[in-house]
């Protein structure tokens, strides 16, 4: 009998916290996103009105407003493209690294793995700031380029979308390498030898053996990079210029500058539905499925 009480305590303490401080806040975003905008404080009307009897006062206008204005759609598309390009480069750099780490001998492997992940532990904001120093007009990269004679005057490397991509690839790279390594580490390296013995050349071995086996790692790593990058605010703010607007910036300004709470909420909730929900549903289905298969 005591066990039951104990289990309840374990299950329901975090349950309570997360419903109160996570689920209800998400529900409030939804509530405000379907409220009617108003000039005032708070800048929206209640969704239940009791003046002349009971009336539900909701609207989908905020969503219509967002989805019909190119300013919002365009920024969201910019963010998706940015996330796609950054994920691609993370994969391009991360895959060979993860592969070579996984094929090193055990002692070296652990050291390399720690070395790769350690920068991830140092401050995110400061790692972005470091690129601001490097890419300055009189920064170290320009000094090198000038001395090598590649360019005759300093290049404007900062405050454009390329600087944003560099910053993102740099800060998110460990998130790509870890899951890739996790899967590459699992499979039997003799398979590579075997395919070579069977006469497959290096390219064929890569495309027919290594790549198919690492697909789960590629998917996991790509998702870990792609989703947060779509909502990224700090990196475009610090390294980007005014050439491109992104989802994060628009959401921030809609709330803090335009004071359009329903609009900002609609933006946020759309983000949840489009980006987060598919992944979470997939994950729940997957964990239930693997649970069943174990039993």
């Amino acid at each position: 009998m005591k066990n039951k009480l104990f289990e309840k305590y374990f299950v329901f303490s975090p349950y309570f916290w997360l419903v109160l401080f996570f689920f209800i806040p998400l529900a409030i975003i939804f509530k405000i996103s379907i409220s009617v905008s108003e000039w005032g404080m708070p800048p929206y009307q209640d969704i239940f009105l009791f003046d002349n009897g009971f009336k539900i006062n909701t609207t989908f206008e905020n969503y219509v407003y967002i989805f019909s204005d190119y300013y919002y759609i365009g920024s969201f598309v910019n963010s998706l493209i940015l996330a796609l390009i950054s994920t691609f480069f993370c994969l391009l750099i991360g895959f060979p690294l993860a592969f070579y780490i996984a094929t090193s001998n055990i002692r070296l492997r652990n050291i390399l793995l720690v070395l790769v992940v350690i920068p991830f532990w140092s401050s995110f904001l400061l790692r972005v700031y470091a690129w601001k120093i490097i890419l300055q007009n009189n920064g170290i990269l320009n000094v090198i380029l000038l001395n090598l004679g590649i360019t005759s005057e300093p290049l404007q490397l900062l405050y454009n979308q390329y600087a944003v991509i560099i910053g993102i690839v740099y800060t998110y790279l460990p998130l790509m390498i870890l899951p890739l390594y996790g899967y590459l580490n699992k499979f039997d390296l003799n398979l590579i030898e075997a395919s070579k013995d069977l006469g497959l050349n290096r390219f064929k071995t890569f495309f027919k053996v290594i790549l198919p086996l690492s697909v789960p790692g590629i998917v996991a790593g790509s998702l870990l990079v792609f989703i947060p990058v779509v909502g990224e605010f700090i990196i475009p703010e610090m390294l980007g210029g005014s050439d491109r607007l992104y989802y994060g910036k628009i959401l921030w300004e809609e709330f803090f500058v335009n004071r359009n709470w329903p609009g900002a909420s609609a933006l946020a909730f759309s983000g949840i539905i489009i980006l987060v929900l598919p992944i979470v549903i997939f994950q729940i289905l997957y964990s239930r499925w693997s649970e069943k298969n174990e039993i």
Binding site: I29, I227, G271, V276, Q283, R288
Partner: peptide, 30 residues
């Protein structure tokens, strides 16, 4: 026996993938 286990998993794993900006906004409005 966890009541509404899928919901439990949803609550405990979504913050991992939710963009911080959305979490921040929802907390503030809450």
């Amino acid at each position: 026996k966890i009541p509404f286990k899928s919901f439990y998993i949803f609550l405990s794993s979504t913050p991992l993938v939710l963009p911080e900006l959305i979490l921040g906004l929802s907390m503030l409005l809450f």
